[in-house]
Design a protein around this nucleic acid. Structure first.
Length: 418
DNA sequence: CGCTTTTGACCTGCGC
DNA sequence: GCGCAGGTCAAAAGCG
């Protein structure tokens, strides 16, 4: 079975389908196209051709008005009988000025957006690099092998107790202790949770899902929806979707299990990102297997990695809180707040831009970056660009690619009502 | 008509 | 053993 990334249901709105983008409000957008560069290209192409200039006027365009206009307003040499004409003329001039300033503002906004995107891309690259470094160190020290690290969401690692790969690993690793095997057992139930701001009922991740249940959980009036992957018969991957009680604009998607089928490129991108998150659980922050156990069992029945796409950037810091990790590359700076750990965080401007940004610019940046799909797309795109790393994902052998947690996406026939 | 969603019932695990 | 909460099942309804 070959996935081309274009095998999408007509019911899903895609970013690369302009015919739907301007006709009605987009509730769900699939950014995970198979062309990872499309997003940046699109952004670039949408920006004005002017080169971004650091000396650019930051929006205080009221000072850049045509001085002749001002002069005309106070021109006392106008003929008395042309009072109306003069007023008309002034109006026209003011109108022209406004239009010109509007256009200039638009250009500036575009330029700012490009800079923001570049900034976030760099941040994500750094974070991803750190993750890969850590995972490499961890595997060298714990497994004593050079084998590529395997995400617990990889096939046979997360859910399969009979998988060949899993058994091989358990028995063929000479230095593996029973304790580590116990850890693996725990990790098999590991989950990846993705927090993102979205008005849609689900976030797009490239896979097909079918809803099989919904429950009101205690302490949260928002119902929790249960989905199952329907891309292949018997695929064990499930996901739960629930809104955050503190901030209902935040959608929490939790993935569990491994796909038993090849993934489309769109899902692979997300997979790469979430796999990195999963690996993080096994890497650096846990100096020993004991530490690993303690962390995992701290507060939840299953170890959970949280990809918080709503959190601020704090670059290069990986936060671990009671058994959960929060990776920094979330939307890295796109939606920022200083209160990293609090779920009820509200949007705040990036620290490095505070004090210099204009209210109007803030609005613009907010509007653009508030879209979790955009954020997720950035993460996935960068991840897949860098990674190539497909260690886990990769369907390099054509089959048996599972991995991930890639899930989040509702597409295809999967009609998820908003 | 086939597939998906909805939703109440049922199952299971856990704490007391 | 009991009750609670989370998770799943499955029949009915909805939709294209």
């Amino acid at each position: 079975m070959v996935f081309t990334g274009h095998n999408r249901s007509p019911t899903t709105t895609h970013f690369d389908q302009p015919e739907t983008s301007d006709s009605k409000p987009i509730k769900e957008v699939d950014f995970f196209t198979d062309k990872e560069h499309d997003l940046s290209k699109m952004i670039e192409s949408s920006a004005p051709t002017m080169d971004f200039d650091l000396n650019i006027n930051t929006g205080l365009h009221l000072l850049t008005r045509n001085t002749t206009t001002d002069q005309s307003i106070f021109d006392h040499d106008v003929r008395p009988n042309s009072e109306q004409q003069r007023t008309k003329h002034q109006l026209a001039m003011v109108k022209a000025d406004i239009e010109r300033m509007t256009e200039e503002n638009r250009w500036l906004k575009d330029a700012l957006n490009r800079v923001m995107i570049d900034y976030n891309i760099l941040q994500m690259r750094m974070a991803s690099t750190m993750i890969h470094q850590k995972q490499g160190e961890e595997h060298n020290s714990i497994n004593g092998s050079t084998m590529a690290p395997r995400s617990f969401m990889d096939p046979g690692f997360a859910t399969s107790n009979t998988g060949v790969t899993d058994e091989n690993d358990g028995s063929s690793s000479p230095g593996r202790s029973n304790k580590n095997c116990a850890v693996d057992q725990k990790l098999r139930r590991a989950r990846v949770s993705v927090r993102a701001r979205s008005e849609a009922s689900v976030i797009t991740d490239g896979c097909q899902w079918r809803k099989y249940g919904q429950k009101i959980s205690k302490g949260n009036p928002c119902p929790r929806a249960y989905y199952r992957c329907t891309m292949a018969v018997g695929c064990p991957v499930k996901k739960q979707v629930q809104r955050c009680i503190q901030d209902k604009t935040i959608l929490i998607t939790t993935y569990e299990g491994n796909h038993n089928h090849p993934l489309p490129p769109a899902a692979m991108a997300m997979t790469s990102t979430t796999s990195s998150a999963a690996r993080m659980l096994l890497s650096g922050s846990m100096p020993s297997s004991d530490g690993l156990m303690t962390t995992i069992s701290a507060s939840a029945p299953f170890p959970t990695v949280t990809l918080d796409l709503t959190q601020p950037p704090t670059p290069l810091h990986c936060h671990r809180t009671s058994g959960q990790f929060q990776l920094p590359f979330s939307n890295s700076g796109l939606q920022m707040s200083q209160n990293m750990q609090s779920p009820e965080t509200c949007w705040q401007p990036p620290l490095h831009t505070q004090g210099t940004r204009h209210a109007t610019l803030a609005d613009t940046v907010t509007a653009i970056t508030a879209d979790p799909n955009f954020t997720a797309a950035l993460v996935a795109t960068i991840s897949s660009l860098m990674g190539g790393d497909g260690h886990s994902n990769g369907n390099k052998n054509g089959e048996n690619v599972n991995d991930i947690n890639s899930n989040n996406n509702v597409r295809g026939n999967n009609k998820v009502s908003n």
